[in-house]
Computed example of a mutant assay.
Amino acid sequence: MSPEKLSESESESEAEAESEALKIAYSPCPNDTFVFDAWAHGRVPGAPALDVTFADIDITNGMAERGELDVLKVSYAVLPYVLDEYALLPCGGALGRGCGPLVLTREPGVDLTGRTVAVPSERSTAYLLFRLWAADTVPGGVGEIVVMPFHEIMPAVRDGKVDAGLVIHEARFTYRNYGLHSLADMGEHWETTTGLPIPLGAIIAKRSLGAEELRRLADSARASVRAAWDDPEASRPYVLEHAQEMDPKVADQHIGLYVNEFTADLGEDGYAAVRGLLTRAAAEGLVPPLGPDALAFP
């Protein structure tokens, strides 16, 4: 076979492999790249190949609502809108303790009654936790909610463009660099009032893939998590490549906070946390109610 024909054959094989690959989207955040590194790079035996799209959670939430892609990392807050088409995988996502969103202000002890608050999305778990916290602690109600890209929130609070900002992820470690104060920890409030872990990000997959394939995906995600734990250094290049100039120490803190036993398996407490959050949010009129078997995995 000539080199040209070999090249054509290789190209056809690559195109065929790409067409058969599972289309997945998750964020470039360290916890997601850490979790999916082994799977994305073919180091999980028996796992389907992945065609990865990197997108922030607000983008993947929209993809889920439009029914795009086979597998997505989304906010738990979006589940009530997509569970007819997608199933919740029992692993691969982000729950935890001591890792909730923060409300930041320029001055300590600000009363948020009637104040403007910047949030990264109104279809996020962070937003649901914030609204549940505000219902309990801001009797007069907060003022205008302004949606803005996550990276703009802390500068906007610092510069006085908004009165407060709701932040997630690595901002827990960096907000002091902006001269800001933590007014309240949404996760602390949630844990104190429920005793449950904080549900943040979920992995969902299309029900149309079938029960057997959904179980294979769950096994693959779980194996990828365990591979990352067994050899953390193997994932480091992938994590830092996509960490958006994040300090490696902050990336390690991020992983330590968001990748835990609930990532390997939601378990009884994990499912209770998810149902508890969405039930409370539905009671406040923030999301549609869940059906009794909506979270069941095949």
Rank of each mutant, 00 (worst) to 15 (best):
S2A: 03
P3K: 07
E8D: 10
E8P: 02
A17V: 09
E20Y: 00
P28I: 00
N31L: 02
F34I: 09
F36N: 13
D37P: 07
G42K: 09
P48T: 13
P48V: 11
A49N: 12
D51E: 14
I57A: 10
R66W: 02
L69Y: 14
L72Q: 10
K73H: 09
V78I: 14
V82Q: 06
L83I: 01
Y86L: 07
L88S: 10
C91G: 01
G93V: 09
A94W: 13
A94C: 13
G96D: 07
G100L: 04
L104A: 10
P108L: 07
P108A: 07
D111G: 00
E122S: 04
E122V: 14
T125K: 15
T125H: 12
R131K: 15
D136G: 07
G140M: 12
F150T: 15
H151N: 10
V157L: 05
G160A: 06
V162E: 01
D163K: 00
H169K: 05
N177M: 13
Y178A: 08
Y178W: 14
D185I: 00
L200M: 15
L200K: 12
I204L: 03
K206R: 14
K206E: 04
A223L: 01
S224L: 12
D231P: 07
A243S: 13
Q244W: 12
P248S: 04
G256Y: 15
L257T: 15
N260Q: 10
T263G: 10
D265K: 14
G270R: 11
G270K: 04
A272W: 03
A283S: 05
L286G: 06
V287S: 12
G291H: 05
G291E: 12
